[in-house]
């Protein structure tokens, strides 16, 4: 017996209410549960969809939630790997070199304080703008949430904490020639990271669009 559209929607809503928020994770779980229920309903004509569903969840809900955690951990690992790969391209190297030279010239002409403000404010501003755009798009177009798209924001925040820590460690040597090169270097790393981040975000969004075009 095949499940109806309403049955499938019921499973999806149940999982969403069980804090499995991301559509890409839920989609595979819904198909797995639906396939298991269909096999069970084939065996017994007396069994209703709701009884079969309830029995399935008694046995498997804890494992499904655990699976959700595992999926998210996997998402983080994949994102970090993708950002790292995108950092090691010729284009990223060109961005790094371009920014470090420009930043050094900038420090010479306008002073270290100006670039120091940029190191902190540019990544933060970028994150705020991106966050607002994402929230507005989700609300207005009522899109499903995807793990890779959302979690990349957290990866971004984490990586910039590392860059900021690096900056704090080096800012007290800003008067010296080498200190100014380090400051320009930290700013260049920030910009290269933003470049790699945007490239990664675009590639995963394209991938989602290709794979889940019926959902998006």
């Amino acid at each position: 017996m095949k499940l109806s559209k309403e049955n499938i929607q019921f499973i999806d809503t149940y999982l969403e209410n069980s804090e499995i928020h991301f559509a890409d994770i839920r989609m595979e779980m819904v198909d797995h549960i639906a396939s298991a229920l269909e096999a069970e309903l084939e065996l017994s004509n007396e069994l209703s969809f709701y009884d079969a569903f309830k029995a399935y969840m008694v046995c498997n809900k804890a494992r499904l939630l655990q699976d959700n955690e595992g999926f998210l951990r996997n998402t983080y690992n994949n994102l970090l790997k993708l950002i790292w790969i995108n950092m090691l391209t010729i284009n990223s190297l060109l961005v790094f070199l371009g920014v470090i030279i420009s930043a050094r010239l900038f420090i010479n002409n306008f002073g270290f304080e100006t670039i120091e403000t940029a190191i902190f404010s540019f990544p933060l501003l970028f994150f705020i703008v991106l966050g607002i755009v994402y929230l507005v798009v989700l609300r207005v177009f009522n899109y499903d949430r995807f793990s890779g798209v959302e979690r990349i924001g957290l990866v971004y925040v984490f990586l910039f904490q590392v860059v900021n820590a690096l900056h704090l460690l080096t800012k007290y040597q800003a008067e010296s020639e080498s200190g100014q090169w380090i400051a320009a270097g930290v700013f260049a790393i920030s910009c290269t990271l933003i470049y790699a981040f945007v490239k990664t975000a675009v590639s995963i969004m394209r991938n989602y669009e290709k794979e889940y075009k019926k959902l998006v």
Partner: peptide, 11 residues
Amino acid sequence: EVKKVDNRLRK
């Protein structure tokens, strides 16, 4: 490859 099968998406 994601396909629509029996009212749901299958990977």
